[in-house]
């Protein structure tokens, strides 16, 4: 399965819904999407990972890159994920301490720091 991406604006948050597999081949598409959103002035991103079947370290690298970009504009990047196999990768790499991870898009959109 390839990568699918769609975006939606909810208040001051931009939700990026990701589906399929994020790996060394597809991660550049996600990177382009995040870069474009930040370049267009969207600094509060919510990345919905509920439709993601596979995530590897290349994908993690893209998400970390996205976080760096929004933070440069005092923005935020929140993740939505309930899938244990995806969460495990964040735990192994210690990234659960880096990303706020929410159980629903509503929760992520409502969250403040």
């Amino acid at each position: 399965m390839d990568l699918s991406l769609s975006t939606e604006t909810l208040g001051d948050r931009t939700v990026v819904r990701v589906g399929g597999e994020i790996d060394v081949y597809t991660a550049p598409k996600l990177r382009e999407q995040l870069v474009e959103l930040v370049n267009d002035g969207n600094y509060h991103l919510v990345v919905d990972m509920e439709g993601v079947d596979f995530l590897d370290s290349t994908g993690l690298g893209v998400l970390v890159g996205g976080l760096k970009r929004v933070r440069a504009h005092e923005g935020s990047l929140r993740l939505v994920c309930n899938q244990e196999r995806i969460l495990k990768i964040f735990r192994i790499t210690g990234l659960t301490k880096v990303f706020p991870i929410h159980t629903s898009v509503d929760d992520a959109v409502a969250a403040t720091d």
Binding site: D56, S57, V64, T93, G94
Partner: peptide, 23 residues
Amino acid sequence: GEAVPEEGVLGGEDDMGLAVISG
């Protein structure tokens, strides 16, 4: 579950890949 990545680990996808494998 106790490994916390250093800045250097996050800086290189090569290293992060190895970290995932080792974990």
